[in-house]
Amino acid sequence: MLNIADTLHRWCSEARPFALATVVDVTGSAPLPVGTSVAVDEHGNAVGSISGGCVEGAVYELCRQVLHDQGPPQRAWFGYSDDDAFAVGLTCGGELDVLVQRIDPATRPHLGAALAEVAGGRPAAVAQVVDGPDKLIGATLSILGDSWISDGSMAAGPTGQAVADRATAQLRAGRTALVWLGGDADTCPERLSVLVHVAATRPRMLIFGAVDFATALSQAGRFLGYRVTVCDARPVFATTARFPHADEVVVDWPHRYLEHTEVDSRTAVCVLTHDSKFDIPLLRQALELPVGYVGAMGSRRTHEERLRLLREAGVAQDRLARLRSPIGLDLGARMPEETAISITAEIIAHTNHGTGLPLTLGTGPIHRPGDQAVDECPAQRPLLTP
C-alpha cells in the first residue's frame, strides 16, 4: 500500500472510505512485487497498479463490490489463461494472490498517521494480517518511531506485540515482506500470515575515492535511491562542485570516516581509490562491519596484491570472501559511466540474489518472489488459499 501512500494519506485525512487491493503472494513472473496495492474510493476514483495492466479491470470491479457491500475482506487469485491470453489473467505467466478489503480511516487513525510519515519521507511500517482467524483478516498495525498502534482487533495482548516486534524488525531491515508467526501460547496464540509494508530511510552508498569513476557512480547510486556519500582525504578533489549528485562530500581519511559513520545491512561500500595506503585500513574495517556490499576497484594484479596485504593485516579468509574485487560485473565497461552501471548492476544482483547472467541463458521465473518472504516456521506455514 505504501506505493500509493500520498493519495491514501489524502483520503485518510478526508475520512474517505476506500477499498484496498494488495498483492499478498506471487508465483512465477508477476510484474509487481508483494505489497503493491490498488485503491478505489467511494466515488470510483482509482490509484495504483498491481499487474501493469493485466488484471486491473477485474480488481477495480472487486474493489467497488467490497466497498459497496461493506463486508469482510475477500481473496482473489489471478493467473495466466492458456485459452485466451487476453482474458482476465497475467500474460507474463505469473500468478497473483490478492487481498481486497474495505478501509474506513475513522476506525483506523493509526493508518493515516503511518501514511503521513511515509508521505513526509520518514520511515514507517504497516503490518496487515492476510491469513489467520477470520476476526483478524485485514487487521492492521502501524510502527511509528519507537511505538506501535493498531486497530481494535490487535490492540491488546500477545498477538499485537508479536506482530509489532516482527514489523519493527522488518522496518530495521528495510524490506517489505510476507512473514509467518504465531502458534505459541506465550507469544502469539494465533497462527498468522502478516504482510509487513515498509517505507525505510534510504540505504547508504559510501564511495571512497574522489575520482572520475566516483562522479558517475554517485549519480547512478542517487538514481537507484541511495543516500550517497563521497569520502576522500584530499580536499582539492573532495568538493561538492565535483560531485553534485552526492548527498554529502566528506574530507577525511576513509577508514577514520567509516569507523564513526552509521551503516547497516543495506549499506554498499565502494572503494575506488586503488591505493594501498587508503585501501588496506579501509577494507580491513569494512569487511568486519555488517554492511550489505563491499567492492574495490583495481586490476586483477592489484586485487591479488590487495589480498596479500589484507592477509598480512590479519583479515580472515571468511572475511576476504565478502570482498567483490575487481568491482562490478563484466560488461566490457571502460568509461566512468559504463563502469558505474557495471558496479550498480553487481550491487543489485548481490542484494537480490541474482546470478548476473543474461536472462536468455536462464530458465524458470524471471522474478524471485520467494526472496521477499521470511518464514518463522516453515513446517507450520498456513495455506494461502483464495
Rank of each mutant, 00 (worst) to 15 (best):
H367L: 11
A113Q: 13
A379R: 13
L357H: 14
R172A: 15
A379H: 13
E262K: 07
T176D: 06
G71P: 05
V98Y: 10
V194I: 08
P105V: 09
M1L: 13
G44P: 04
A199Y: 11
G298E: 02
A220T: 10
D279M: 05
R242L: 11
A164G: 12
A220K: 05
V294K: 05
F18V: 05
T7E: 15
M154K: 02
T351P: 03
C377G: 06
T267K: 06
F18H: 00
L329G: 09
H197W: 06
R322I: 02
S265K: 11
L258S: 01
R175D: 02
D184E: 14
S142A: 15
L331K: 06
S325T: 08
P73E: 09
Y226A: 05
Q161A: 14
T36H: 12
A167P: 06
T239C: 08
A296H: 09
P17D: 03
G120R: 08
L310I: 10
G225D: 03
D97M: 15
R122V: 09
S49R: 02
D69H: 11
T201L: 13
P290Q: 02
G362D: 07
T27Y: 13
D104T: 13
H274E: 08
P158H: 15
A210R: 00
A313Q: 10
R191G: 03
G225F: 02
D25Q: 13
L217M: 03
E95V: 12
R368M: 07
T159S: 13
G138P: 01
L283I: 11
S150P: 06
V211T: 07
A268K: 01
T302L: 02
S29I: 10
S325H: 02
A233T: 03
A19Y: 01
C92F: 12
I343Q: 01
A333P: 12
A216V: 07
A238I: 07
G182T: 04
L178Q: 03
V249G: 05
G370K: 07
W77I: 14
I341G: 05
